[in-house]
Nucleic acid binder design. Structure first.
Lengths: 191, 191
DNA sequence: CCGTTAGACTAACAAGTGTTAGTTTGATTT
DNA sequence: AAATCAAACTAACACTTGTTAGTCTAACGG
């Protein structure tokens, strides 16, 4: 069998992400995970090599997805405001697809070990790109001349918290949510 | 000695909060905490009764501070927008005073045990009050008629992330930061 | 039909966990 | 000088942790 690589392993990672969201990486034991999978802890090791590896599988692919999305956005031929809207849409899309994984990305990245450096590089790069877009928008008079870091912090905080909120909504209409959020984040809430 | 109650215990809690911020409650061992305090793990128990109790001491007092602040704001004679500004200031003030504790409040509340129910009540109440202020603002035509939950989610996400950001700033001018944030959150970033 | 293999199992490990008991020390009070 | 007491210590506990070794079983490819 060539192995479609691989339902079982993927199920474990998906289940792990769900548990990690509820209690955090450190508080979830391999026995917890095994129970949730309906098997014994030792059996998990037929599919994965370590607990660490699960965390890495969850976080790194997501981080790379963000970096890839940002690369496309920053090189696109759009106004600064349009780029911000695309960033909002990127977060909504990725988070809708994998809200549990986003919890680990946000809360458990510090438990990455060998991969920690790489993760921090991706994150730093992402934030630098984000900041540059805002600075360009201020320069081109699209964006108000407020502290760009405050602007980024405010937007990014909201987008990073989406994972808490998206699973609560019955039917998530990604398009509508992204538009709604862009509206609030860019135009504010004033009448 | 009547005991000013109590430098030592407070130092332990403060140190614990710092460690909890870096690795999360579950990943910090009593031996880690003891090392950071320059003592042996067993010695901690001369001052505190359990690891649990430390978490409770960190979180519950903060949660009560927020509830108390909200009580004053919601009963004040102010416009909805002014109330929102006061909420921003409340978060900035509490977070500036205790950013490490805010990390636990945000990330480790689920590890409260007997106190979990009480915490959730406080939190739920806070969010209901917050939402009511926004709804009143929409009704009185102060606030744009966007989904009030989206508005609250957006503002609250930013305010809850302040703990990550405030320690990075050299000199935090609370007043200025609160104004800056209010500006961005309420008026948006459009030119 | 037989060999291989995926995927479960039991048993066990070494290390680490929160916590308790009992002791020592050095300063302060009587 | 004796007594008290806060606050550190050592030693140990019962349990939990991630992980390994080795085994069993049922399905599938030749």
């Amino acid at each position: 069998m060539v192995n479609i690589e691989g339902t079982r392993r993927d199920e474990i990672i998906k289940t792990a992400a769900k548990l990690f969201k509820e209690k955090g990486y450190s508080a979830v034991t391999m026995r917890d995970l095994a129970t949730a999978m309906g098997m014994k802890a030792a059996s998990l090791y037929n599919h994965i090599n370590s607990k660490q590896e699960i965390l890495k599988a969850i976080i790194i692919s997501l981080a790379e997805e963000f970096t890839h999305g940002m690369d496309i956005i920053k090189n696109s031929d759009q106004t600064a405001i349009e780029k911000l809207k695309l960033i909002v849409a990127l977060h909504v899309e990725i988070t809708t697809k994998n809200p549990y994984g986003m919890a680990s990305l946000n809360n458990d990245w510090m438990h990455l070990e060998e991969q920690l450096g790489y993760y921090l590089e991706l994150r730093e790069g992402y934030e630098q790109d984000f900041l540059k877009i805002i600075r360009n928008g201020v320069f081109s008079n699209e964006i108000a001349d407020t502290n760009p870091e405050v602007i980024m912090f405010s937007i990014l905080s909201t987008l990073r918290s989406l994972y808490l909120w998206i699973p609560k909504k019955e039917v998530v209409n990604s398009k509508a949510l992204a538009q709604n959020l862009s509206q609030v984040l860019i135009n504010g809430i004033n009448k």
